[in-house]
Amino acid sequence: MDLHLDRITLVYPDGDETLTAVDDVSLTVPAGTTTALLGPSGSGKSSLLAVAGGLTRPTSGDVRIGEDVAFGPHTPLRAATRTRLEQVGIVFQAPQLLASLTALEQLELHAHLRGRRPATVRDEATALLGEVGLADLAHRHPAQLSGGQRQRVAIARALVGSPDVLLVDEPTSALDHERGTQVVELVTRLARERGAAAVIVSHDASTLGSVDRTVRIVNGRLETAEALVPG
């Protein structure tokens, strides 16, 4: 399903004033494609990602997944949480893995959150770890993995349950150029194979060669949008 951001505005209180982090942004990310949100620090790209993932309610505008409104200004917290669980996968800037869980358990957790036995997703989780090149490290804890390996576990975790939307926040910030490029290529490939609408937030355009489209955001507004390249 496509991801639609319809006229999203996000205003934060800032002392006695207000700060407009996202200003009337509309964007559609077709299913199976990856769009990179590019911009300098403080431009509003992470805020837009937070709105797209239902982590923050927009001041106005709606986030739609397919035809359904997923997150809006009045979406109840419980409904937003449920939608995130069932339809959205998020990869954070730092891998944010749980220290007590092995790589495989990080993925099985998704099933438990949905009220199912972890074993029900074991095959899918094992396959996903294989796809990110970590099949042999499935039973290691985060402390036993390198930074790049942890990032790949985080990507695999976000894809458990085949979400419609994949949101990736600054995946290359802690990696060198070569590994950063590989991570972006991995996200793009997996999103395409799984038909997910993927958004990657980044401030480093040099690693984004594999994405389908790059969108620049400055001061909370979309500035340019490169044409979508068929994958």
Partner: peptide
């Protein structure tokens, strides 16, 4: 916070 972001209910 991560668990909540992943979809864990309170």
């Amino acid at each position: 916070a991560v668990l909540k972001a992943l979809g864990a209910s309170t």
